[in-house]
C-alpha cells in the first residue's frame, strides 16, 4: 500500500455543495491508497479509523461467517466505504476486501472526527451526506432481502 496527497477532493459528488473551508478541512486528512486484488482493507472488529472513496476497482463488504465468507455487497468507482469511524464504538462491522485492484482516496477518520467535534457545521454537513449514503444502502439491502428472483412455484 502507498500513500500520497489527494488534492482534487471537491470533484467527488459526495462533497458537492460543501464550502471551501470544509473541503480544505477534509483535504488535510486525505491520502491516496492502493490495494491489490485479494488484499484486506479492513477486518471486522478492528479500529475503524478510515473513510474511503473508491476511484477505481471494486471492493467487497464481507460478513465473515464460520467456515465461509458471505459477500453482502460490492462497491466500485464513485462509492464510499466506511462510516464506522464516525459512530461509536468506532470498529469495523464487516470485513472489506479488494476484489479488483483498487485505487481509493482515504480519509483519516480520527482527525476528521476531531474536526467535526470542533466544527459542528462541518460535522452536520458530513452527517447529512453519510446519512444519504446509509439510506440508499439500506433501501438496496431491503430490496436484496426481498429475494425478488426466488422461484415461487
Amino acid at each position: 500500500m502507498t500513500h500520497s496527497r489527494y488534492p482534487e477532493l471537491s470533484e467527488h459528488a459526495f462533497f458537492a455543495g460543501l464550502d471551501n473551508a470544509a473541503v480544505a478541512a477534509i483535504q488535510s486528512c486525505a491520502r491516496d491508497c492502493h490495494y491489490a486484488t485479494g488484499n484486506w482493507i479492513a477486518r471486522q472488529g478492528a479500529p475503524a479509523d478510515d473513510l474511503y472513496f473508491i476511484q477505481d476497482g471494486r471492493v467487497a463488504v464481507v460478513f465473515p461467517a464460520p467456515q465461509r465468507e458471505l459477500t453482502i455487497q460490492t462497491l466500485s468507482a464513485g462509492d464510499i466505504v466506511g462510516w464506522s469511524w464516525l459512530m461509536p464504538p468506532h470498529e469495523w462491522q464487516f470485513d472489506i476486501k479488494a476484489v479488483k485492484d483498487c485505487s481509493m482516496m482515504g480519509i483519516d477518520g480520527r482527525s476528521l472526527r476531531a474536526k467535526c467535534e470542533q466544527d459542528h457545521h462541518l460535522g452536520y454537513a458530513l452527517m447529512k451526506r453519510l446519512s444519504r449514503v446509509m439510506v440508499d444502502r439500506l433501501q438496496a439491502t431491503r430490496l436484496q432481502l426481498m429475494d425478488v428472483y426466488e422461484n415461487r412455484k
Binding site: T37, R58, A60, V62, R68, E69, L70, T71, I72, Q73, T74, S76, A77, G78, K97, V99, K100, A140, L143, Q144, D147, Y149
Partner: peptide, 22 residues
C-alpha cells in the same frame, strides 16, 4: 450483479438497480 454470493464470486454483489448510477 447478483443478490447473494460467497467469496468465490469476484463480480458485483447487490441489487441491479444500484448499477444504474453512473
Amino acid at each position: 450483479t447478483v443478490d447473494h454470493a460467497d467469496s468465490r464470486w469476484n463480480g458485483n454483489v447487490g441489487v441491479v438497480t444500484t448499477l444504474v448510477n453512473r
